[in-house]
Design a protein around this nucleic acid. Structure first.
Lengths: 164, 164
DNA sequence: GGAGTGATACTCGGATATCTGGTGTCCGAGTTTTCGCGG
DNA sequence: CCGCGAAAACTCGGACACCAGATATCCGAGTATCACTCC
């Protein structure tokens, strides 16, 4: 069970976009270069984020991406689900009904599989933890703990590439 | 991010093995037939469970699998990790260090990536939930809620195939 | 009849194919800019 | 000098190869059983 690498990219990108002025945009090329990753592949994930309303895409020259809503309203869960999809990692294939020993009458398996419930319960805990953290908090935390020099360099580098 | 189907099979098998007498065994062939799944592929996962100490394998005729320790000492997390591996789903590839804007001095990135921390925190919540549930509770819960007829049929079917 | 011994049948274990989904890439659609031209 | 228009350049969006890991399988190693033989 491994998570797509795109999730890491997506969160970093959204966090960066949370630091620029609200109406400014950054093109995918800049985001990819900043993180040292493939531009075309990153674009694939940015598209998913835009489709989910987390980002807003602006076409044409001087175009790029900006946040689709305020950073405090974007949870980590939103980003993860936009990239990975909303279906749960554990999928119950109802093997309790596949063997020679099972009930045939309709409604016999009305109650959900206990194992399914247990696994889903764990995923709910995971989702709650992700939902409790939003991009705004994350960006502020990064701003407070990052090396001031790195912060200044980043701000300058991004400032030269930001679009209004 | 999808979990291996083998996890579902493994949990069901361990739950079944928790219902037979402590010293009895069930061969993989029986477990596979009971759940209506491929025997050879199930064997692959049972092997992993045995390697983790969750199951104990007995070779030869009258052989098979039994629990490696009491059911109450086997958590769902143990089973999941035995099948899926212990590495976390989210893997930080430290893309913060890959772009043009990064610090070069050693120790500059001593503090872990905040995004990495956030994702790991969610996984810890997931693991705690899985660790809180053990096979013994699960088996008892199943026994209490299952249809009595199904329970009797299963007990008879398994009783005919159990090895002492 | 009992014990020893060999073959046997059954079990698990590791190495080997196949296939789906993540990874990576390319080219096309759309829009804003910009440069040139005419008034 | 200003307004208009067409071309251009840059952006994102969807469709197409590639590869790793999950899926599925087969054959070999090991052991308890069982039958046969000998005492």
């Amino acid at each position: 069970m491994k998570m797509s690498e795109g999730v890491e990219w997506a969160i970093h990108c959204v966090a960066i976009l949370a630091t620029i002025p609200p109406d400014a945009t950054l093109p995918a090329k800049t985001l990819a270069e900043y993180h040292g990753v493939s531009e075309t592949y990153l674009l694939k994930h940015l598209k998913s984020l835009a489709a989910a309303g987390i980002l807003q895409s602006v076409p044409g020259p001087k175009g790029g991406y900006r946040l689709g809503r305020e950073a405090d309203a974007i949870s980590l869960l939103d980003v993860v689900e936009a990239v990975e999809g909303k279906e749960s990692a554990f999928r119950c294939s109802e093997i309790r009904q596949r063997g020679p020993i099972c009930l045939t009458e309709p409604g016999a398996y009305r109650l959900p599989c206990a194992i399914h419930v247990a696994m889903l319960q764990a995923e709910v805990a995971w989702k709650k933890s992700l939902q409790a953290q939003n991009i705004g908090d994350l960006a502020r935390h990064l701003k407070d703990t990052l090396d001031p020099r790195l912060l200044a360099d980043s701000a300058e580098w991004l400032g030269n590439r930001v679009r209004i």
